[in-house]
Amino acid sequence: MELFFQQTINGIMLGSTYVLVALGVTMIYGIMRLPSFAHGHFYMLGAYITFFLITLYNFSYWPALILSMVVLFFIGGLVERIVFRPLREQSQISNFIAAIGILLFIEHMVTVIWGPHSHRIPNPYPEHIYLFGASVSQQRLIVILAAVVLIALLQLFIKKTVIGFTMEATAQDREGAALVGINVNRVSSLTFSIACALAAAAASLVAPIFVIVPGMGSLLVMKAMVIFILGGLGSIPGAIIGGYILGLIEALGGGYISSEYKDVFAFGALILILAIKPTGIFGKGAA
């Protein structure tokens, strides 16, 4: 039982980062019909900026995390504006190539500035506590709680503010939104910004317990894509539930069945769910 509880916590913690990154991918796809392969690299950049602020400017952890989110917010908006907006009317393949270009650019830039080797952010909360017999480090609990807070804030923003309505409206009918007077370009920018800020938050949250390296987002973005498909393309509740499910599958499958096939379970789940429900958990028919 203890073991199960421990693995469940492990899974939820894994899932928390998955959700935050997958939400970004999902939102960008919803608004812009763009599979954002570069998202893992924005995540990585977020971690580096937090690292940079803490080590070079002696920021403490939380201000650095928030400032990193702000920086990525602006970078995200800028990238939408100067890279993806001009490609709006172009084919999917141009967008795909642009995403790969951004990804390579970020990775090389980070490698040149900070080197190929890994860095660490000092853990602000290194103690661990016991919960029902399971040992959990404080920072891991913080990751879990902060993810919940961010998800809740995002939901409130989307469901309760007019700006949030415009995001949903644009996702549901882009031309319809433009015709009621919504500046859909600005909505796209904002979406990209929020998605990147969420990625920065996720990366900065786990950075103290993991390490930061230029390649840290590559595997994660694959998983975010899996969740995005699993949840039903563009579905926000799908991304949330899908992210936690994937984390739990990895932890429980990896813990009880075989650690070797940890990642196989994730992709296996994708195939299984798509076989049962081809549109994903929250997919909307053939629309």
Partner: peptide, 14 residues
Amino acid sequence: SYYADTDFSTQITA
């Protein structure tokens, strides 16, 4: 996967 992974708590717990 020591190169790609960052969280090993599943294996360690097991």
